[in-house]
């Protein structure tokens, strides 16, 4: 019984870590869906590219097994450069693959998004090979850095993942709620035409949406790389589907919903791994998505939007 309780505590910590990353990625899906009502299939790949960029930055500071600069400089640099790179990528994707199709039938942008996703995966395979890459996390944060609360051990890397995610999410929430651009984004998500009547350039707002969403995914990529220490070109697919699940769970288009959904999904998945079977980890997440979409497509915090005839 004690054992079970300890297990439960440990899995809660795992779930929280996993969930905060899902939430980071989910935000991008949710923001794009909120403004364009479009599923950005390529978002998972943006996250993957972020992980590779972080890996690349880390590589610059490595000489054999020696770290050339303090982790306090290296880790922020990894995150910031990955965020900058992925935000540029996200804006580019929207400009090239989605903007020309904005008035096309719904199928067209979806297939286009799928194509971008395949392109990015294989571009990485082509330039970096299909072999998994290893993050030298132990050089940055020794495994021995950990604290114990009750029966759960919390490694410093977990604290970093959760901490960075929370800071970014609070930052985003504040930006969306209180900045001029954030208000313009919310106005545009609600009524694109009326927003343009206020002098808001809808194209710029949409670019901004992709920029922010992609930057968050890029940060998520670096955090996952640091946490799991292994990344590969295929990691974006499953992560993307789960983040989408998180976004739908919380109510797609709703920023706080995406955060809540991410955390919930992380917890459910961790508990499932512990108490059912690790091989069915993805099955649990995907089944949850399907059941959810069928029974409550509006999600936990979503609003029911009536369809206009």
């Amino acid at each position: 019984m004690d054992d079970l309780f300890a297990q439960l505590q440990q899995q809660l910590v795992n779930g929280l870590t996993l969930g905060s990353v899902y939430a980071l990625i989910a935000l991008g899906y949710s923001m794009v869906y909120g403004t364009l009502e479009m599923l950005n299939f390529a978002h998972g790949e943006v996250f993957m590219i972020g992980a590779f960029m972080g890996w690349g930055v880390l590589g610059l500071f490595l000489h054999g097994t020696a770290l050339l600069a303090s982790p306090i400089i290296v880790i922020p640099l990894m995150i910031i450069i990955a965020m900058a790179g992925t935000s540029a990528l996200g804006v580019g994707i929207e400009w090239f693959a989605y903007r020309p199709l904005r008035n096309a039938p719904r199928l067209a942008p979806l297939i286009s998004a799928l194509a971008v996703s395949i392109f990015l995966q294989n571009f990485v395979v082509l330039t970096m090979s299909a072999r998994a890459k290893v993050y030298a996390t132990q050089l940055l944060i020794p495994m021995t850095w950990q604290i114990t609360i009750g029966d759960a051990t919390i490694s410093f890397i977990r604290i970093l993942v959760v901490g960075v995610s929370i800071v970014l999410m609070i930052g985003l929430d504040y930006f969306i709620r209180h900045s001029k651009m954030g208000r313009a984004m919310r106005a545009t998500a609600q009524d694109r035409e009326a927003a343009s009547f206020m002098g808001i350039s809808v194209d710029k707002v949409i670019s901004m949406t992709f920029l922010i969403g992609s930057a968050l995914a890029g940060a998520g990529g670096v955090l996952v790389g640091l946490y799991y220490t292994q990344i590969d070109f295929y990691m974006g697919f499953a992560a993307g589907m789960k983040a989408f699940t998180a976004a739908v769970l919380g109510g797609i288009g709703n920023i706080r919903g995406a955060m809540l959904g991410g955390l919930l999904l992380g917890l459910v998945e961790s508990l499932g791994v512990a108490f059912i079977s690790p091989v069915y980890k993805d099955v649990i997440a995907f089944s949850m998505l399907i059941i959810l979409l069928i029974f409550k497509p509006s999600g936990l915090l979503g609003e029911q939007v009536p369809v206009k005839v």
Binding site: L107, M241, V279, Y280
Partner: peptide, 28 residues
């Protein structure tokens, strides 16, 4: 039957999830 009521992109993701579940079941 249950998922065709959903909008196009939700349907896409539901069926995609189903395909992944099938593959994982075959694997495991």
């Amino acid at each position: 039957a249950p998922s065709l009521r959903l909008r196009g992109d939700y349907l896409a993701i539901t069926t995609m999830g189903f395909a992944q579940i099938t593959r994982l079941l075959l694997l495991n």
